[in-house]
Amino acid sequence: MEGIENIYTYLKGKFGEGIGILDKESRDPWFEVKRENLREVATFLRDDPELGFTYLVAITGVDYSKFVDVDYKGKLCATYILYRLRDSHQLIFKVFVEKEDPVIPSVWDIWRAAEWHEREAFDLVGIKFEGHPDLRRILLPPEWEGHPLLKDYKEPEEYRTPDGYLVVKTHRPDPLRENNESDQK
């Protein structure tokens, strides 16, 4: 099956309300999947002979809190990029969650590649993937506080290893900071 609109209609007919909006304006169009239906939709996308998206390219965690005015502004989002290997068809869909309740069901057993991508999205954006076998920080040290790719992330004043072996001040002048007026021109 070719074309995002065909796939969207096909899925909409199958899952109804489980499939949300379709963004055709975007350069790479995408559609929304409601998180309650994510696992069913994901299994269907992988196993349906018409679709057959067996290859997960990446999961991008996004914080939409400072985005332009859209319905999903202020939400957290996991963007799934899929391939169908036989004709290299690409598919993007998104799952939105509220910032207060950032829980998305894990798809690690549907696409095994998701295991690490979900850990990364948890580490950097703070989305919790329910049912993930080993959801811990992957890139940052385990004692790190906060999720750096959130838009309101504040860097800590100092870095300290848990045993106190190393203490470093992290402060530095920042000419590119948003509230720096000389940069606005």
Partner: peptide
């Protein structure tokens, strides 16, 4: 990186 820094010292 900070994660590596203690190893450098070690």
């Amino acid at each position: 990186t900070y994660k590596m820094a203690s190893r450098v010292k070690l």
